[in-house]
């Protein structure tokens, strides 16, 4: 119960805002990919372009464990879900994939706040631009 509460409060508050600026914020030093999942956000290209998922927002900041989503909702392989035919908004509304939590009670409903996850071609380009710039710097 406590976990759910933490998720609702922290997750809902931080999710979109933190997500928007995820690209701007440097990933903290103590970010451990084994604990929190891949560092780089996943950007889905199907069925529509430029939808983002950021592990850090959900795990490190939201308090979710790996097994909260894997392997029941999503395969471990990053971005694999987009190959499924049912990876659609309609499935989300029925509680599939992100819709398991994004149902309006655990986290904001899938049919609200579209641009929180749909960062758009503009947002995706910006993210990739930053990633490229970041790689260059290393």
């Amino acid at each position: 119960m406590k976990k759910v509460f933490v998720f609702v409060v922290v997750g809902v508050v931080l999710f979109s805002g933190a997500l928007l600026f995820a690209a701007d914020k440097a990933v903290p030093e103590d970010y451990d990919e084994d604990t929190y999942g891949p560092k780089d956000p996943i950007v889905w290209e199907k069925p529509v372009k430029a939808v983002v998922f950021d592990h850090k927002v959900h795990t490190m900041e939201g308090g979710l464990e790996c097994d909260s989503c894997h392997d029941e909702l999503f395969q471990m392989e990053a971005g694999a879900a987009q190959e499924n035919d049912d990876f659609t908004m309609a499935t989300l509304y029925d509680g599939g994939y992100c819709g398991a939590c994004h149902d309006g009670s655990t986290a904001f409903a899938s049919n609200t706040r579209c641009t929180a996850c749909h960062i758009g071609v503009r947002g995706s380009d910006r993210l990739q631009g930053d990633a490229a710039a970041g790689k260059k710097a290393h």
Binding site: V13, G17, L20, F21, T115, V121, R122, G123
Partner: peptide, 18 residues
């Protein structure tokens, strides 16, 4: 084309509007 604007949600949060 699509333009993008930001709307503040208070504190340091904001939402994107296309």
């Amino acid at each position: 084309t699509i333009l993008e604007k930001r709307r503040s949600l208070g504190e340091d949060k904001s939402e994107t509007i296309f």
